[in-house]
Write a protein that binds this DNA or RNA. Structure first.
Lengths: 191, 191
DNA sequence: ATGTTTTTTTGATATATGTCAAAAGGAAAT
DNA sequence: ATTTCCTTTTGACATATATCAAAAAAACAT
């Protein structure tokens, strides 16, 4: 989904407005496994994923990677807290495939917020949408068995679930990769 | 914290703006254990908690109450999805103490969003703040032991943790109340 | 104060899932 | 094609936490 259509699907901008807004973004092509943000750095950009996919993750005490979120096509990807508060990021941000992104800096997005009230609305809608998704995951994680959590994953990220290493999904779902492997064995896989 | 100070702490409104905004809210005093929203109903209001506290919860398959969130003084309380999408609420909303609330209807808040771009900003900021909190909880729930989750609770809801039934906290933290009881036994309680 | 209900604690036991280690399978590189 | 590296699977065993049941404590009502 291209970025214009995506923006317009949330708020209807005039042609001029849309063009002005798009001019605050920069298009960027990045290769598989490229790291956009390091843990501890400030995340300077909000990225729109036009093609490809990414994830955020952190290293736990044992130094193991824990996937925190997946970002598919047509989504905003960022280390939200870091980006909005200009605080050190708790997460790494990386792309998992060759991807096409549109990025916008904090100062540019703030300019847009000032200039266009509709942008505030867009920000509000995008935040609430993300909030809903996180709440969904929370409910899955908190009260469901490993098997049920995997079902949640299939529903929430159908496009992603068969394209990334099993270990990434396991850590995202809060289970060991051995457990996920055993679950998959019993899952009647439709292909 | 009274509602005016709260609003002004997020966005600075003029005196007239603030008064107009406040006129869209209704003050309401409710007694302990009163249920504001039933599961399946539409949540028609967003509540600001000036005094007291509340929680959202749902009934799981076994009919047991699962606390989903606590809302303390100075917070907005609502069944977010239901309120914003006018969809049936997945949760009950109840107050856990005699409380003083300010409520605003969906149509009124939409009027304010239309009238004041600053309100969009307020909505965006409040959503992002909530998002951050939910992400925090998610991280606590997903990768921490029962003991560590209780520590998270102490940090996130210091004012609430000793004032509500242990069972509510246990279900909020995704553990049995027996487990929480055993954890508390070993927690050096400062009083 | 006394009885009744609700909440919390304690003990015994069960189980889902984690951890560790090694084998198998696939992908990438020479 | 072979080698090397990375990912996934399998097996054996350990353990945190759930569940069930009952006692103790606290809160509430008459």
């Amino acid at each position: 989904m291209n970025i214009s259509d995506f923006l317009m699907s949330l708020v209807s901008f005039s042609k001029d407005e849309l063009n002005d807004i798009l001019n605050h973004f920069e298009k960027e092509s990045v290769l598989k496994n490229e790291v956009l943000v390091q843990q501890g750095d400030i995340c300077n950009y909000l990225y729109y994923v036009e093609q490809g996919m990414g994830r955020s993750y952190y290293l736990n005490e044992s130094g193991r990677e824990i996937t925190q979120w997946f970002f598919g096509v047509g989504k905003f990807m960022t280390s939200a807290d870091s980006f909005f508060q200009k605080s050190p990021s708790l997460y790494y941000l990386e792309v998992l495939e060759d991807s096409v992104l549109y990025r916008i800096s904090k100062s540019n997005i703030d300019k847009l917020f000032e200039k266009y009230p509709k942008m505030e609305k867009l920000g509000r809608l995008a935040s609430i949408e993300m909030l809903t998704r996180v709440v969904n995951k929370l409910n899955a994680i908190q009260f469901q068995t490993a098997k049920e959590r995997y079902d949640y994953m299939l529903a929430e990220f159908p496009d992603i679930v068969y394209q990334v290493p099993l270990g990434h999904i396991a850590s995202y779902l809060g289970m060991s990769q051995e457990t996920l492997s055993r679950i998959r064995k019993n899952e009647p896989k439709i292909m």
